[in-house]
């Protein structure tokens, strides 16, 4: 579906909008490129001159701290100029359309848009209407996709586990509203894991979720049994208002990850969370800070993955290679 839009005829990443539609080899290339960038953080001067003179615009129509700052750091480490636009409080509230905002930024000679938007499909829309020289990276669109988050999660899993094919991965929580989960499911299946399970009450699962290639579980003890990786998802505050879930308390009782219900997972299972964590809702502090948790490594890897994706997309537009 988005293949034609995000991959050019030579197989290069013109935009990075969605994990769906990308081949295994392309996902591996992103992780390999991130691997080559991860040592930059250990240098005394944490910069490479790859994107000198390029302008990256962080176009965030929805509030974000972690994603925006890691994109900013990634662009800076690649020596790009970065412009942070918190559009949620500027142009669109004055009635300017998304398309007009884009045209104005293009007129300022931006080379790349990193887009976060509350509506599914927003990044596709921006990519479809952006000038040909502009690359677009999806930093999260509605409930649809968050491909850089999914790739940093894959990168983290690969660093700890090595191979994907023997793995059973369980994703716990609000799948229905989670762009992270959708992108993770596509990435895990493309990378060939043995099984992807989703664990949630029916109100937090989209109908026909099985079609995405997952096993559905409603019982967390069954769902995490023999799992190698357990990913917990953030539960937005507005989901706890009694319409989808009766209470935060019952959610934690049934779906909160604790040392107790982790007991059925593999002994070397790792615990992940895209952040920010609601302690005592998605997981307890013992689990979040415990030895199985790789949550802070995920954050660190976010910078390398975003450097990789930014450089690959920029290279597809300038005709240069990333290396």
């Amino acid at each position: 579906m988005s293949t034609g839009l995000q991959v050019d005829s030579a197989g290069r990443l013109r935009h990075f909008l969605d994990v769906a539609g990308l081949k295994r080899q392309q996902l591996v290339e992103i992780m390999d490129t991130a691997e080559s960038f991860s040592e930059v953080a250990d240098r005394s001067i944490k910069k490479v001159p790859l994107l000198r003179g390029k302008t990256v615009v962080n176009l965030f129509f929805e509030a974000s701290t972690r994603t925006r700052t890691t994109f900013e750091l990634a662009a800076k480490r690649l020596s790009a100029d970065i412009l942070n636009l918190d559009v949620s409080t500027s142009a669109t509230t004055k009635g300017e359309s998304l398309l007009d905002t884009l045209r104005n930024l293009e007129a300022m000679h931006a080379d790349m848009f990193v887009v976060r938007h509350a509506e599914s499909g927003a990044a596709h829309f921006v990519a479809r209407h952006a000038a040909p020289h502009v690359g677009v990276i999806n930093a999260g669109d509605g409930c649809h996709a968050h491909p850089t988050q999914a790739m940093l999660d894959m990168f983290t899993i690969r660093r700890v586990k090595g191979e994907f094919t023997p793995l059973t991965v369980a994703i716990v929580g609000d799948i229905l509203h989670s762009r992270v989960a959708r992108s993770q499911i596509h990435a895990l299946n493309t990378l060939g894991v043995r099984a992807v399970r989703v664990i949630a009450p029916q109100t937090l699962l989209p109908p026909q979720i099985e079609q995405l290639g997952v096993e559905v579980h409603h019982d967390i003890h069954e769902g995490v049994r023999d799992a190698d990786v357990i990913i917990t998802l953030r539960l937005q505050r507005e989901r706890m208002d009694g319409r989808l879930l009766p209470s935060k308390h019952e959610y934690f009782q049934l779906y909160g990850l604790t040392e107790t219900n982790l007991a059925t997972a593999k002994a070397d299972a790792i615990v992940m969370h895209p952040g920010p964590i609601n302690r005592g809702v998605e997981l307890d502090s013992g689990t979040a800070d415990g030895p199985r948790s790789v949550i802070l490594q995920q954050v660190t890897h976010g910078i390398a993955i975003r450097m990789a994706v930014i450089s690959m997309v920029m290279a597809a537009h300038t005709g240069e290679t990333t290396e």
Binding site: A20, S120, G121, D141, G142, C143, H144, A145, R179, R182, P206, P207, Q208, I209, Q211, L212
Partner: peptide, 12 residues
């Protein structure tokens, strides 16, 4: 609301 809405994350 169906397979496509589940995939695209659009409200069905």
């Amino acid at each position: 609301e169906g397979e496509v809405s589940a995939r695209l994350g659009l409200t069905g």
